[in-house]
Design a protein around this nucleic acid. Structure first.
Lengths: 222, 222
DNA sequence: TTTAAGTTTACGGGAAACCGTAAAGCGAGA
DNA sequence: TCTCGCTTTACGGTTTCCCGTAAACTTAAA
C-alpha cells in the first residue's frame, strides 16, 4: 500500500471523507492542502527532504479566495508537480464528467487514474487506490477508454478554444484577426477565422455565434 | 437539538461528512437521500406516519442519472416540500456563491439558512444548526444580508432571464418577438426587445450579444 | 378633455455576421 | 520544374445586429 499521500482538495467536507478512507486503508502519512500553491510546496519540501510522496489525489477546481495563488486549478498543480517529480502516482478526483476534458488529463498531463465524484465515489476511489498500488499503471473507466481511442471529440484543439474564448470576450472577427497576427497565431485571416467559426457551429449544431458560445460554455470548453 | 434530520445530497463524500457531524451533535435519526424524488418521498412518508422531520439539509444541484427524476434540483425539492410541510426548517448547503441566486432562496423559497460549501464549511454548518435550534428563525451571512436589502442586482427579472435564454438558444430578435407574441409576453416588439438587450449589455458591460451571453452564463443566470 | 411623461413600437443607416465563390499560397510527388 | 491537391485568404452579397431618432400608444394628473 502507499505510505505517503497528499490530498489537494478545497472543500472540507470532501477532504474529510477522503482522509477517513485513507486511514481505513492503513496509510501512515496523510497530508492535506486546501490550496494548490500549498500542495505544491508540500510536494517540493518532501522531495527535498528525501521523503517524497508516492501518491497525490487532487481535485480540479478550487474556489477563489482572498489569497492570490499562482496555481489556481488542479491541471496547473499536476503539471507543476510532474515537472519536479514525474514518477508520482496521480489520481484526479473531480465532479467533471465531460469525457473529452477527462481524456486530456490522461493524454496531456499523464495522470494515472480519474475518479468522478458522484453517488458511489468513495468505493470507486478505494478500488482505484488498491489497483494502483497493485502495479496497474493506468486506470481508465470504460466510457473514457472508448473516447481515448476515437478522436471524435478531441479534434477541437487549442486553436479553437482560443478562438471561442476571444469570441466570448466580445471581440469581433476583425479584432481576433488582429490579435492573432500580433501573437503570430496562424491562420489569422478574416476569412479563415470565419470559416473556422463556421465549422465549429456545424460541429456543435449552433445556429449563430451567440448559440455557439452558449453551447461551449455549457460544455466547459470556454 | 433537532431529533429527525434528512440530508438531500448526491455526492457520497459530502453526505458522509454531514452525517458524521450530525452524529457528533447527538441527533438521533439521520436519513439521507441521493435523489430529490427519494428525499421528497421520505418527507411525505414521515409526515404521513405522524413522525415528521424537523430539519432538512439540501444541496442545490444534483447529477443527472439513468433515472429520470421529476425533481431535478434542490430548488424544486424545497418548493415541493414546503407545500406539504411549510414549517420544516431548511438549510441549503451548496457550492453556489452568487449572492443574487442565494438571495432568491430566502425570498422565494423561504429557507432558514444558507451555508456555502468551502474550506471551513463543516464548522459553519455546525454553528448554523446550533443557532437554528436555538430559536433563531433566519440566518443570513453578512454579505447576503447586504444584498437582501439593496435591490441592485435583482432588478434582473423573469423577463430578462427569458430573453437571455432565448438568445442563448440561438434565436434572433425576430424569432424572439414572434415567440413572445405567441406566449403573450409583453413587450414583444422588435425594437423593444433590442432596447432591453441593450440595457442588459450596458448593465453587464458587454460589448455585443455574444459577450453578453458569455457573461450571464458565467453568472449562472442562463 | 388636455397636457405631460413614460413606455412601446416603427424605421433607417451603418457595422458585423453569415455564406458562397474564387483567387493566392504552399507543400509533396512526378 | 511543373502539376496536383490542400490550406489560407480575398471579395461580394444578404441577413442580422446595433444604435439613434421619431412616432404611436398608455397612463395619470391638471
Amino acid at each position: 500500500m502507499f505510505t505517503k499521500v497528499l490530498i489537494a482538495e478545497d472543500l472540507d467536507t470532501i477532504s474529510f471523507a477522503i482522509i477517513q478512507l485513507l486511514q481505513k486503508l492503513g496509510i501512515n502519512e496523510i497530508n492535506h492542502s486546501k490550496y494548490c500553491d500549498d500542495a505544491f510546496l508540500k510536494i517540493k519540501k518532501a522531495l527535498h527532504d528525501g521523503l517524497p510522496y508516492d501518491l497525490i489525489i487532487s481535485d480540479l477546481s478550487f474556489k477563489r479566495d482572498h489569497r492570490d495563488d499562482k496555481l489556481t486549478s488542479g491541471e496547473e498543480l499536476i503539471e507543476a508537480i510532474k515537472k519536479v517529480q514525474p514518477t508520482i502516482k496521480t489520481i484526479v478526483f473531480s465532479i467533471e464528467d465531460k469525457s473529452f476534458r477527462i481524456k486530456s488529463l490522461y493524454t496531456n498531463l499523464g495522470i494515472n487514474a480519474y475518479v468522478c465524484k458522484g453517488r458511489d465515489s468513495i468505493q470507486e476511489l478505494e478500488s482505484t487506490i488498491n489497483r494502483l498500488c497493485n502495479n496497474e499503471e493506468i486506470i481508465v473507466s470504460n466510457e473514457i477508454e472508448r473516447n481515448l481511442r476515437t478522436n471524435t471529440l478531441l479534434e477541437i484543439e487549442r486553436y479553437d478554444i482560443l478562438l471561442l474564448k476571444s469570441l466570448a470576450k466580445g471581440l469581433t472577427i476583425e479584432d481576433i484577426s488582429a490579435e492573432f497576427k500580433n501573437s503570430e497565431i496562424k491562420p489569422n485571416g478574416n476569412s479563415s477565422l470565419e470559416k473556422r467559426v463556421n465549422k465549429l457551429k456545424i460541429y456543435f449544431k449552433a445556429t449563430n455565434n451567440v448559440h455557439l458560445i452558449a453551447i461551449t460554455k455549457d460544455l466547459g470548453l470556454v
